[in-house]
Amino acid sequence: MPSETPQAEVGPTGCPHRSGPHSAKGSLEKGSPEDKEAKEPLWIRPDAPSRCTWQLGRPASESPHHHTAPAKSPKILPDILKKIGDTPMVRINKIGKKFGLKCELLAKCEFFNAGGSVKDRISLRMIEDAERDGTLKPGDTIIEPTSGNTGIGLALAAAVRGYRCIIVMPEKMSSEKVDVLRALGAEIVRTPTNARFDSPESHVGVAWRLKNEIPNSHILDQYRNASNPLAHYDTTADEILQQCDGKLDMLVASVGTGGTITGIARKLKEKCPGCRIIGVDPEGSILAEPEELNQTEQTTYEVEGIGYDFIPTVLDRTVVDKWFKSNDEEAFTFARMLIAQEGLLCGGSAGSTVAVAVKAAQELQEGQRCVVILPDSVRNYMTKFLSDRWMLQKGFLKEEDLTEKKPWWWHLRVQELGLSAPLTVLPTITCGHTIEILREKGFDQAPVVDEAGVILGMVTLGNMLSSLLAGKVQPSDQVGKVIYKQFKQIRLTDTLGRLSHILEMDHFALVV
């Protein structure tokens, strides 16, 4: 994948999101292997301009796509893939009243899908469409860049269908997702969380590099694949309309690839034109409109599966009536509230959605109805927002919020430890010299600072030695090549209790 991002070429006709291997024109390309080798690009942008032909009021008969309808489940399912879809609609009884809503608040519980998330729908649909058009064949390999849930859905379907599955996901995604993927037989590649989507090191860039190296491999490409919004247009939206008897006044959905909100909203605009569509985008993402909503100094966020630093091709923002931004604290607070007060075992993005819903639905009156999409299960986040310690460490809970008995030293300040200034190293000294210094002084790690004293990161003896043994660096290389740029900081005025929580999850903390 090139470091400079080429513009994806656009073909003359058809839909841009065809499933299957992508040609340089962004659509299915038939021909000899030699032709494909000559024409197939190194990668295709996940934010390529959409060429979708959908228009409100256009006859369904003019759609270029294969459409399906929700099917009634048999008493005995032939395999677990038949437990994807037909998820329950559940009334939220307490939270709406707590925040003064007059309307009825309903939750579409997508964590009841077989793999635990709304992404099971698009995973199965992308595979079925690729099999139907002859792209996927027995023994082929599926590769997908994902925040985890699409990966789980694909790995689940691949396990049943017999495909090899490789999932490329950023490091910030939970260990629970990784464990589930491994249990399903998927191979996992992790990428830096802070890598831009168009960087060769991003999950998108690495996935395309693997595709170019592995024979008979395919990126189904949830960011561009029409099967993504079509899955929701054909099934999720129809289920909502049936469950609500066609009567709903507002739908609120958090947005990642945009397939969920695009597919549902398009069908609702056709069948229930008075329904307002509300999009939820986390602070630090750029999906919301108008652009002024996205202006923030924050560039990272903890909530998973929603928000991006690019506009995915499948996201149709014209069908969203209003956007709201959400933050991590309210997302996790509301997710825990949904679990504790409503018994809905949902993930953090569901918290984002409901946090926005109780604001947006203030305009609705008694007798009206708001539906929220709860995308995934708490299963993926047992060591994250479900953990009091994690919430404390991230600053989303305060010590006084917890009532468990603490040891005698818990409320003492870090400054009472009488710490001395640490050994520091410059980023320009060599790895070999740094190892000598650390061994001589008896230290395992040291902060790396520039000549102005600005902290650049941390270097550890173990990481340097393993990097040297693996051949990633040489003793003569500058130590700046092996620094940890993500590390926890703590102030002298913070409590030892807070430091204790940090050290339970990290090997060190830097006192500043």
Rank of each mutant, 00 (worst) to 15 (best):
T53E: 05
R161W: 07
I143S: 01
M89W: 00
P145S: 04
H232I: 04
K102L: 08
P215Y: 08
S174T: 04
G151L: 00
F112K: 06
K177Y: 00
V252N: 07
L251N: 00
K211S: 05
E187I: 09
P273L: 14
K102C: 08
L105P: 03
V206H: 00
L184M: 11
C275Y: 00
I214P: 04
H22C: 12
G139R: 14
P21K: 10
C275H: 01
S63K: 09
T191D: 04
E37W: 11
R121M: 03
K102Y: 03
D238C: 08
K97G: 12
T236Y: 00
P6H: 07
T5R: 09
P88H: 04
S123I: 07
A107G: 12
I152K: 00
E29R: 13
P33H: 08
C103V: 06
A186G: 06
G256P: 00
H203F: 07
E40P: 10
G26L: 13
C109A: 10
N225Y: 00
R161M: 08
C165D: 01
F197T: 07
E270W: 05
V168Y: 04
G20S: 06
A155G: 09
I44C: 04
I95M: 12
I44F: 15
V160N: 06
S227W: 02
K271F: 13
I80K: 06
P12T: 09
G258H: 00
I166V: 15
F99K: 09
L136K: 00
G162Y: 10
E131N: 08
P200Q: 07
K36Q: 15
V90M: 01
V178I: 02
G100N: 09
R132A: 10
E9L: 03
V118H: 12
G258D: 01
F197I: 14
K39L: 15
P145K: 04
K75E: 05
S199V: 03
S123Q: 07
P64L: 09
I152R: 00
T87C: 02
S50K: 08
A38L: 13
D86K: 10
K72A: 09
P78Q: 09
K102S: 01
D133A: 06
S202A: 11
L42A: 10
K83G: 10
S27L: 10
V90Y: 02
C109L: 04
I95K: 00
A157P: 06
T260G: 07
V160W: 07
E131W: 00
V189C: 07
R51P: 07
S147M: 01
K94G: 14
K25Y: 07
E110N: 01
N194I: 09
S50E: 08
A186K: 01
L42W: 03
K94E: 11
P273C: 13
H66E: 02
N225Q: 03
C244E: 00
L241P: 01
P138D: 03
G85Y: 01
T262S: 14
E131T: 04
T141D: 08
D245F: 07
C103K: 00
E110Q: 05
A48G: 15
P16V: 01
W43P: 10
G153K: 04
R121G: 01
A107T: 11
K30V: 09
A48P: 10
E187G: 02
K267L: 15
S147N: 02
K75F: 04
R209C: 09
I240G: 00
K102E: 08
F197C: 05
A71H: 13
H66F: 11
M126Y: 06
P200F: 07
T141I: 10
Y233D: 00
K82V: 10
C272P: 08
K39I: 03
L156D: 00
G116Y: 07
D35I: 11
I219G: 00
A60N: 11
H67V: 11
V180G: 02
T260F: 01
L105E: 00
S202R: 04
P49A: 10
A155T: 14
L156H: 00
S147G: 05
R164G: 04
A24Y: 11
V180F: 02
I127L: 11
R164V: 06
R45F: 05
K137N: 12
T53C: 05
G57N: 14
G31H: 09
